[in-house]
Amino acid sequence: MSLLADNIRYLRNRLDYSQQKVADDLMITRGRYAKYEDGASEPPIDILVRMSRYYNVSIDLLVTVDLRKYSLNEILKLPDNRILLPVKVDRHGANVIELVPHRATMGYLQGYADPEYIESLQTISIPFLGPGKYRAFPAEGDSMPPHPDGSYIIGRYVESIDDLKAGKTYVFITRNEGITYKRLQARVGDELELSPDNALYHSYRVHLADIYEIWEFACSIATREFAKGEVQGDNIAIMRMLGELKEEINNLKEGNKSQGME
C-alpha cells in the first residue's frame, strides 16, 4: 500500500487541501488520515472507496499506479474499472505504440492490465495514425490473408462495445484464444460472431464475458518479403473454393450418416 500513501498525498497536494479538510470530508480524524498518507496503516475497504470517490480516481489506479508519473487527464478509464496506460507521444508528436513480441503473446494475458508489464514492452512510432491508443500484436497462422505469419497488426483500442462495426477486422484478447485477429460478422445478444478471412475456417461465437480487450485494425507491418503471387486474388479464390469443397464433403458425410440411421 506504499503506492496508495504516495498517491493520496500527491492528490491532496494537487488540490492544495490540508489534511484536516480531507479528513473532515472523509468523516475521519486528521490523525487517522495522516497515518494513511504516511503508510503507517492501511485503510479499510469502506475508507478506500470513499477516497476513490473523493479524488475521482479508481481504486485500481490508487493502489497499483504511481500517479505522479502520469497525467490523470490522459489515462483511459475503462468501464470495468481496469486501466490502460496513458496515450503517449514521442518528441515529434507521433503516437507511441507498444509492441507485443511473438515470444510474449502468452504473457500478455497475465500482463495486459499491469502497468509495469506494459511499460516493459518496446515501442515504435507511426506519424500518420490519428488520435487514440494503439498497440501492435503479432499475426499468427493463416486464418487472415493477406497478413502472413510473423507480421504485426496495429490496433486502435476500442473503448465501448457499441463502437464495433460488422464487417471490420479487430484484434480480440480473449480468455480461451488469447490474441486472435478476426473479422466481426455480427453481435448476437451477449455474443460476437467472428470469422477468419480464410475460407478453410468456419466462423464461431465468443461470449462478451470472455473478451478482455478489443483493438480495431489500423494498419499492418510485414516482417518478411511476400512471395510472388502470395497475395494475388487467384490464391484467395482457390482457398475459398477449397473451403466450399470441404463444406460440401461434410454435408455429404452428414447425409450418409442420416441415411444409415434410417
Rank of each mutant, 00 (worst) to 15 (best):
S120I: 08
R68A: 08
D234F: 11
E140S: 14
I118V: 08
L184V: 08
A23V: 03
R53V: 15
V22G: 06
M241C: 14
Y70F: 12
P127M: 04
D210C: 04
K133C: 14
D163M: 09
N7S: 06
P115F: 02
L109K: 04
I249V: 12
I47K: 12
A5Y: 09
D90Y: 04
R30G: 07
N13Q: 14
L48V: 00
E193I: 05
R103A: 10
L48N: 00
G39I: 01
I154V: 13
Y152E: 00
Y33Q: 04
D142K: 02
Q259S: 15
K165D: 13
R50A: 07
V188T: 11
S195W: 09
P43A: 03
V49F: 04
E247D: 15
E177Q: 12
I179C: 03
A136S: 04
G150Q: 00
E247T: 15
L242N: 10
D197G: 07
N256C: 12
Q259G: 14
N13R: 14
M239N: 08
I118P: 02
R240N: 11
E191C: 11
A5I: 08
S151I: 00
D60H: 00
E262V: 13
D6T: 14
P43I: 03
L184P: 04
Y33I: 02
L61I: 05
P79Q: 07
D197E: 13
D90V: 02
V188M: 14
Y134P: 04
